[in-house]
Structure formats: structure tokens, C-alpha cells
Amino acid sequence: MTEASAMASTALPALPTLNHNWRNSLSTLLYQRRTLTLFLLLLPPLLWFGVVYIGSLFTLLSQSIFTFDEMAMSVSAELTTDNFVSLLNPANYDIVLRTLGMAVAVTLGTVAIGFPVAYYMAHYAGPREKGFFFVGVMLPMWASYIVKAYAWTVLLAQGGVIYWVLRQLGLLPVLEAVLRLPVIGGDTLATSNLGRFLVLTYIWLPFMILPIQAAIERVPANLLLASADLGAHPFKTFTSVLWPLAFPGVVAGSIFTFSLTLGDYIIPQLVGPSGLYIGNMVYTLQGTIGNIPMAAAFTCVPIVLITLYLALARRLGAFNAL
């Protein structure tokens, strides 16, 4: 680019690589034409993401304004807004609210369990202990989703481990009382919202711990000490110093817990009461019924929600914490 480097590259033929003339010119070309190099680097991924991914998304979303003939069970290219209008049906509205409610609950649950783990990792653990915690969080995070979901169906089953432990401790009546509560309760742990909350919280927990840990890692320990020296109680230090500085990490983690819960359709099927989630609804619509237009309109709900959430997260500084 600069004159000096251009000279350096024109001086190259004097070196032993003289016999590779084509190689030399290619090297020079790549070095001098940065835009060309950039273009060559970007071309394959752009083609892949542009054609395969954006192309597919576009195919799907464009079908959301097509008409589905319920009699013939077929899709025709007559344009309509009916699919989006019927999203506002009370039944569909319920599905969206149910899913959103669980996404919020799971996000709060993962923060409650994850924050102490992240804080301990970042500020208290020595190097070895920190490594231990890292592997300890990474392994369950990367362990197979379906294996973890399956493991919970085994643990939650009547006659399974959790019921056994509660019986030994004499706590079964407590569980039964909790299960009689509205909203979170159900006939058994495995068919209650409490059970579903537990499984979703478990599965997305590592995705919350790691961003919080990264955010707290950047908080200098002497800030917390200074706060204490200036007479703040630990609680005050937490609310005024630690939490505000860790908050971008919490938001970054919540992007995952939120998005993953919104799109999940397998755990709502395996654990918890009946009543569809957005994911189940989309799955049913496109699968058994074949109503791709309505399914496409329904996928717009998580896409819009997550886009809004990402915009909010950017404002809250979460992107610097990722």
C-alpha cells in the first residue's frame, strides 16, 4: 500500500523464490490490492450466508403472506395478511404470553443461581479453582441437550431420585402443597410448570454464568474494597458497585436464556403441563398440518421479540460484555 512496501514487494524477484513467478505476482497482488483480497476472503462466506441462510429465511418469511387452503391442505401464492391477523386470536396470544412468561422466569432463575457462581469464579477462586469451575461449567453447557433433557425426565419421575430424596427427608407433603399452588403446580413434578422451569433453568444456566463471569472479571477488586473502606455495607457495595458493573454481563446472558427459551419446543413437550409454546405451535403447524404460511407468521413472533431484545441489550451495553 505504502510506497515502501510496494518497493519491498517489487524487490522480491531477486530472492530465491524467483522461479515461482506466478506465486510472486499473486503474493504482490494480494498485498497491494487489499480490497481485492478482502473481496476474495469474503466471497465464500458471503455466498454461504447470503444464499443458504438469508435465502432460506427469506423463503420462509415470504410465505407468511401466502394463503393456506384448509380444505385442500395446500399453499397458494395469493397474498394475504390473514396469518398475521390470526396471530392476535386469544388462543395464539395466550401461547405467546405463556412462552414469554416462562422466558422471563427462566432468565431470573438463571441469574439467581448463576450470579454467585460467576462472582465466586471471578473474584474469590484461585487460578486452579477457577480452572476447575470453568471446566465444571463448560462440560454441562456442551453436554448434549437431549441427554440433559432426558436426564431430567428420569430425575423428576415419580419413583425417581427427587421423590425418593424428599420422601426420606419427610418433605413430600411440602412438595404436594407446592404442587397444589396455581400456575406453578400440577399433578406431579414432571407435569408441573415448576418442573419445566427447573429443567429450562438447568439447561440454560451455563449460558448465564459465563457472560456474568466475564463482566465481573473486569471489575477491579479494589473498587469493591474502596466501597467497603468508604463505609458501605456489603449489601450497599453489591447494589451500588458490583451489580451495575456486572449488569451488562447479566443482559448478555439473558439474550441466550431468553432466545433459547422462546425457541424451545422439545422441553415443553417432555416436561410440564399441556398448553403450547411458540416453538410447539410452529412445529405442529408446519409438520402435521403443513400450514407453512401460518407457521412462518408465527416464527415472526420470536424473531421480532429477539430483535427488540437485542436492540435493548445493545443500549444496556451487553454487546461489550459478550
Binding site: 443458504v52 420462509l60 410452529v282 408446519q286 416464527t299
Partner: peptide
């Protein structure tokens, strides 16, 4: 984006 969106988009 949730996996279900990617999945259905590719399928369609």
C-alpha cells in the same frame, strides 16, 4: 435466533 427458526427456514 432460535434453532426452530433456522430449522424451518432451511426446510422450507
Amino acid at each position: 435466533l432460535p434453532g426452530i427458526v433456522t430449522g424451518i427456514a432451511l426446510l422450507s
